[in-house]
Design a binder for these strands. Structure first.
Lengths: 149, 149
DNA sequence: TTACGTGCAAAGCATTTGCCTCCCT
DNA sequence: AGGGAGGCAAATGCTTTGCACGTAA
């Protein structure tokens, strides 16, 4: 049994990419981060313990990890893109309109089956999905009813 | 039977918003546009027949239409957000990685049922979905095999 | 008549790029 | 030793904002 961090590091080395301290720090963080963080959140976290790291390096590292399939990117125009390195297979998410929280979600449609259906019902050759649900998380529901009452 | 254009215009008037020539032109276009266009695509189209329209007005009009529920927004960081005013109920889309084409897609899971499942399987109060599939459209598949061969 | 809407230009963010330096292998 | 990687700062692209003027109701 290997950790997600070890998996990513192994892939990088196998493909001949250099393991710099900055890359190690970034990979270590995103391999464990359940927030589906933004570039800035990762930058801030790396920066705390490794102040000689720039935003550009985080962007470039993310680009590399996307290319080799070890990082999922979810584009947003407001607040910055969100990333998932913990789980790179197809799965669904819920997002909170109030606080921005993003969590994994299990849905009955075994995750591959939606892609299969998309292939069957279109002329596209579909290879990946983006399945997200939006609303209010438990905390923000409480806050809203408090504000209304 | 009313057209989508008439529906949106009626909603705007009922809510007391002014119907300016610019708004009419914008609404007329997006009510029929099957491309899931970007702000810039709508701006260019309006501009052809109505040169005294600015990008800012398109942005402001979209903001208004989103607020009253007559326009769906799909955020992208690359290439700009995409919009759908033809069909504002929950439905799925396929997008082409090659040319950017975005089309409606019918999937078995009656579209409300995914939201219901998301509610059942999370502590969120889910109100809307974003269900998208990515791959290559028929045209881009041909071009790719031609390039490879 | 007057508050709402428009248009212009400047500002705001997220992201990308160029270029030089550094250091992993 | 050499080339991939990092850091800085400038540039890019989409979107928002402030303000003065025009116009629908």
């Amino acid at each position: 049994m290997t950790t997600r961090y070890e998996d990513i590091e192994t892939t990088l080395r196998e493909r001949g990419f250099r393991m710099t301290p900055q890359r190690l720090a970034i990979v270590r963080i995103i391999a464990e981060d359940v927030r589906h963080p933004t570039v800035d959140q990762v930058f801030e976290t790396v920066h705390e313990t490794f102040p000689t790291t720039s935003r550009a390096t985080v962007y470039k590292t993310f680009e590399l990890l996307k290319d080799i399939g070890e990082l999922l990117e979810f584009e947003f125009s407001e607040g910055g893109n969100r990333y998932d390195a913990k789980r790179v297979g197809p799965h669904a998410h819920v997002l909170c309109d109030g606080c921005g929280r993003m969590e994994d979600l299990e849905i009955d449609a075994a995750d591959g089956s939606l892609v299969a259906q998309a292939n069957a019902n279109s002329s596209f050759h579909v290879t990946r999905q983006r399945v997200e649900f939006y609303g209010l998380c438990a905390k923000c529901q409480v806050q809203e009813s408090a504000a209304a009452g």
